[in-house]
Design a protein around this nucleic acid. Structure first.
Length: 213
DNA sequence: GCATCGATGGGCT
DNA sequence: GCCCATCGATGCA
């Protein structure tokens, strides 16, 4: 259960800060996904920061498109993209507006509504795996492109919103290179996770695809 | 147990 | 044509 003080909404100003400040500060914060069957609540344990137009690894690097338009909007909104022909991944837009910075949610712990998450994650062998990995996290929360552009900073029964939760002190935060990022973007240690947390996805160095013969 | 492989589709250069 | 995450199958300990 979440203690009452932790149920305060995260104000939009939280996201209107440098993305490298916001990303580690998101650890321990709470995502509430309201579904017709009830809420699924997740505590964030692993994130990655993306620096918009300055970052070759960001979807926003080459400017706005129909897909990434939400990234260029105001902070506190949800950007959802479709990947690998099967999966979705979820980001929170950071400010200031127009810079297209954002944080990818990579892993979390389901703290409420686990029975709903399990129905969507039938291959998970235990509850620690329900949201271990960005596409697993989006699947567990029933997040797809229909939620792209959702405002996560308004109160009430919105489909998706952020709560304050309990921030993680910096001595419990680890950081390292981002997962699945190749090229010059790989040098930045912009992946942040809660040290020793069992729901954090294992690090995989970027492995180039083998060319078809 | 663990590594490796193939399959999946859209967005963009 | 390259780049993205995950899963089930397979092969090797």
């Amino acid at each position: 259960m979440i203690a009452p003080p932790d149920r305060m909404p995260l104000p939009r100003e939280f996201f209107d800060r440098p993305v490298l400040e916001v990303a580690p500060d998101l650890l321990g914060r709470i995502v509430v996904r309201t579904t017709p069957d009830g809420p699924i609540v997740l505590r964030i344990t692993e994130v990655e920061a993306y620096d918009g137009g300055n970052d070759p690894a960001s979807h926003a690097y080459r400017g706005p498109t129909a897909r990434n338009g939400v990234m260029f909007g105001p902070p506190g909104y949800v950007y959802v993209y479709f990947t690998y022909g099967m999966w979705h991944c979820m980001n929170l837009v950071c400010g200031p507006e127009g810079t297209a910075r954002g944080v990818l949610l990579r892993a979390g712990e389901i703290v409420e509504g686990a029975e709903l998450a399990r129905k969507r994650r039938l291959s998970a062998r235990n509850d620690k795996e329900l949201a271990k990995g960005p596409a697993r996290l989006a699947t567990a929360l029933d997040v797809d492109r229909s939620l792209d552009g959702t405002d996560a900073c308004i109160t009430g029964e919105t489909p998706l919103r952020m709560l304050a939760g309990t921030p993680v002190p910096s001595h419990q935060v680890s950081n390292g290179p981002r997962t699945g990022v190749s090229g010059e973007g790989a040098v930045h240690p912009w992946r942040f996770w809660i040290t020793n947390d069992p729901t954090v996805s294992p690090y995989r160095a970027h492995t180039p695809r083998r060319r078809p013969s």
